[in-house]
Write a protein that binds this DNA or RNA. Structure first.
Lengths: 98, 98
DNA sequence: TAAAAGTGCTTTGTTTTCCAAAGTTAAATA
DNA sequence: TATTTAACTTTGGAAAACAAAGCACTTTTA
């Protein structure tokens, strides 16, 4: 029998990063505070996970304004989409036996 | 929007424990060494993850013999099945939006 | 206009988790 | 009797996660 976990992406072992990606797959853009509230995280914790995803080129940051307020939003990259899909495929393969 | 990761089970954040469970769902019993080879782990590492799963009452240990050789096998418990299924349901719900 | 509050971080320090390597015990085989 | 195998336990170090505090900047409020 083949190693069932070999194809899982280590970046997505984290529930938080998994959550961020799952949100970004269906939302073109999402703001820092929306994510923070949705995932119930402290700023520091969220920022560090976002940083990990950005380092991997899985998400992109956009700094802009809403009216006159600063606003940072995040979106998924093509690479991110691909990696996330591959991870889900690996997960599914692992449990499709059910 | 609701927190998409709140229903994930922390025990299954670990790819290894996830792998063990996915194997045990389809195999009534599996031996320590089979698991070790399948998941490509050191004994200590595997033993500690198995211990975590046993503490949670998600798996059961059977110590016996094959012929005159000692043999330890593991099986999933009812609680384990239930918890694993709940985790998969949470995962699916999180990504069904796709 | 001074104080308060919000945004989005970075830094700091602690706790938790992970993991390999070595040590252990008991039985089996050479 | 020496070595090997099975299944751990212990040890120790590295990595990851996380909360809390600090910070720079802007905007709103009193």
């Amino acid at each position: 029998m083949k190693n069932p976990i070999a194809d899982l992406n280590k970046i997505f072992d984290s529930r938080i990063r998994l959550g961020v990606m799952s949100v970004l797959v269906v939302n073109d853009e999402i703001g820092f505070n929306d994510l923070k509230q949705m995932l119930e995280l402290t700023d520091g914790n969220l920022a560090s996970h976002l940083n990990t995803l950005e380092q991997a080129d899985f998400i992109k940051v956009h700094k802009g304004f809403i009216g006159r307020k600063t606003s940072t939003t995040y979106s998924i990259t093509a690479l991110g989409k691909q990696a996330f899909k591959a991870h889900l495929d690996a997960l599914e393969k692992m449990i499709r036996k059910l």
